[in-house]
Amino acid sequence: MRSDVSQFDLTAPETLDAVLTQLAAEPGKHTPIAGGTELMVALGIGRLAQRSLISIQHLAELRFIRVEGDAIHIGAGTTFTDIRRSVDIARDLPLLIQSASWTGSVANQNRGTLGGNICNASPAADTPPALLAYGATITLVSTTGRRTLPYADFHLGYKRTALRPDELVHTITLPRTFADYRHYIRKVGTRNAQAISKVALAAVAKMDGDIITDIRLGAASLADRPTRCTAAEVVLISQPINEDTIRAARAALASEAKPIDDIRSTAKYRAAVAENLLEEFLRSLL
């Protein structure tokens, strides 16, 4: 332990309203903590800059999976284990189940939450590619009300999000409209378990014969934030799958990918593997 815990404050207001009130009273002073699977690692290694934490782990209001009509609403406090055990998510959103299974260890999955995974905003996080491919929307709450925005607009830059200091993520909403879509997701990590992504790609596509009528691609570790690969999507939509299409899609993905060299991999490797994964998906559609 490289931190002196006596130098940190932790409060646990009983209700969501009480949390929001405290966040609003002193904007930016407090950091919400749910499962703590990111913040406690930083604390252990002596790198946790935030000194005042507000626990939201116990808030039942944020922990739910609800099917309503054409959508599934997932509370921000829903754990990876909750997601993995949900029959509804397994049926409608298999990519989310798969990505939740990748994260850390079983112990991490029992504590870590979907909201935390998003707000930590690592470009390598496991669930964002699936959320991007499914076209999720995200609902934020504060004492002044709630607002909903496309999840694709949530990440503004490296570890920067649209979340205001007085806000919490409340709900992630995903459409249940992918029954006739083809699904693909693959994580290329440093190893097969307990690994951080070098690159990951999630994809859904709707086919009419050999023509792609709809396609959405979400990627991790291809830029400074989780990204939707719109350039590749544009060249693929309404196209038949053939060698030319595949070549064009690879080029488009290369044009929009902005990977980096870091301690886990190289930019060139990441870009090449992302193209390979896209090609693997496209060929699987034939």
Binding site: V41, S122, P123, K159, D262, I263, R264, T266
Partner: peptide, 12 residues
């Protein structure tokens, strides 16, 4: 070619 000083997941 790894850049050992950059780690965007576990270091900020």
């Amino acid at each position: 070619d790894f850049n050992l000083t950059v780690d965007r997941d576990t270091r900020v």
